[in-house]
Computed example of a mutant assay.
Amino acid sequence: MDILSVENWDLGLEMPLYIAGPCSVETPGQLDQTVAALVNEGVKVIRGGVWKPRTRPNSFEGVGSKALPWIKEVKDKYKVKFAIEVASPIHVEEALKFGIDIFWIGARSTVNPFTVQEIANSLKGIDIPVLIKNPVNADLALWIGALERFHHAGIKKLGAIHRGFSNFNDKTYRNSPMWQIPLGLKTYFPEIPLLNDPSHICGRRDLIPQIAQTALDLNFDGLMIESHIDPDNAWSDAAQQLIPLDLGQLLRTLKTRKVDVDNPLLQSQLDLIREQIDDVDRELLEILSRRMSLVEKAGEYKKLNNVAVFQMERWKKVFETRPEWAEALRLNPDFARDLFQLIHTESIKKQTEVQERNEQPKIR
């Protein structure tokens, strides 16, 4: 993809790119006070929800188009850039009238290719940055597809926002980070600016610093963080918004990492460690190969004795013991659980293939 870097968006932006502001634009006073406080903390790009897609009806869905003149007023007053979510061509048309600088496509829109295409078509010939949030569910293909649709529409100022993924098993985060997915996106399209949205991942303001720093450690290009002048009384997502003072303190304490190593001695040590990692990875694959050979033997035995491939007691034992073993080895038990979920799924597949071998009816 021929994508322009953030520095070439003609908005005077710096890296890393920090975007902050309230979940929702509520009143002229709330917006003005929040923006004034954020500018005082050095924020140059403000975010604010105008139209809010909600899961259930009768929830607060944003104040709508009447917020756009308020945004134009604070843009002129404080000399800031402004980003909002758009979910339809009508939103695009209304927002452009008031000089909105950056659009983002929300997670609920990204899941629908028809919606994405309609918005992309409405932006043909318009030179404006568009940021695409990942879909609610962990589907990299949908995310890539949305980016491609906007790129095909001629958008070169294109970026992605990682806001986490729905996961009912996650008891810590509102949306699980699942870092491997945004890193997968970056592998496919290294030129696309990638921001992290710790507010929607965490759902709680006390967790935001850790996720924000992790994103920068993983070489993300910036952050989008929700900030409100009075978050406890916010009309939406109160628990995940920071006061501007706390946001400023967070941004000042975050550390950015160098991508390249310019010290020859350090590079030599890093290369040595990586060689050792490669050796261990080969050993891991050899062990997995041996395990799958044993799995096939078990499958043959079950076939000879007319035993079902899937056995619940064995399944339960694997998922009870492996996290315990991992914890004893000072490994993350959740990582072990996820790993053996994959291994067990592949094992079932192998044994099913054994059961089906030479048992397909011959068709004359």
Rank of each mutant, 00 (worst) to 15 (best):
A95G: 12
A95F: 09
K97S: 01
F98L: 07
F98G: 00
G99D: 14
G99F: 02
G99Q: 08
G99R: 09
I100T: 02
I100Q: 04
D101L: 05
D101N: 13
D101Y: 08
D101F: 02
F103G: 00
F103W: 00
F103L: 03
W104G: 01
W104P: 00
W104C: 04
W104R: 03
W104Q: 09
I105E: 14
G106E: 11
G106M: 08
A107V: 01
A107C: 05
R108G: 08
R108Q: 12
R108S: 11
R108C: 06
T110I: 02
V111E: 13
V111R: 13
V111L: 09
N112L: 13
N112I: 10
N112S: 15
N112F: 13
N112H: 13
N112R: 13
P113R: 05
P113G: 06
F114E: 15
F114K: 14
T115H: 15
T115F: 12
T115R: 13
V116G: 05
V116K: 04
V116T: 00
V116I: 12
V116A: 00
V116C: 03
E118R: 14
E118K: 15
E118T: 06
E118G: 05
I119W: 05
I119A: 11
A120M: 07
A120R: 10
A120F: 02
A120G: 08
N121G: 07
N121P: 07
L123A: 12
L123H: 12
L123Y: 11
L123R: 12
G125I: 01
G125W: 05
I126Q: 09
D127H: 12
D127P: 02
D127G: 05
P129R: 04
P129I: 00
V130N: 12
V130S: 13
V130D: 15
V130P: 09
L131Y: 08
L131A: 07
I132K: 10
K133L: 09
N134K: 05
N134Q: 07
P135W: 01
V136A: 15
N137W: 05
N137M: 09
N137Y: 07
N137I: 07
A138M: 03
D139Q: 11
D139M: 04
D139S: 10
L140I: 15
L140G: 06
L140T: 04
A141F: 02
A141E: 08
A141C: 01
L142S: 15
L142M: 13
L142F: 02
W143S: 10
W143Q: 11
W143N: 13
I144G: 09
I144A: 14
A146I: 10
A146F: 12
A146S: 15
L147N: 10
L147I: 13
E148Y: 14
E148P: 07
R149K: 15
R149N: 11
R149D: 09
R149C: 05
F150S: 11
F150P: 06
F150T: 05
F150N: 03
H151Y: 15
H151T: 05
H151W: 15
H152T: 04
H152A: 14
A153K: 08
I155S: 01
I155N: 00
I155D: 01
K156L: 02
K156T: 14
K156W: 00
K157P: 00
K157G: 03
L158E: 10
L158T: 04
L158F: 02
G159W: 02
G159K: 12
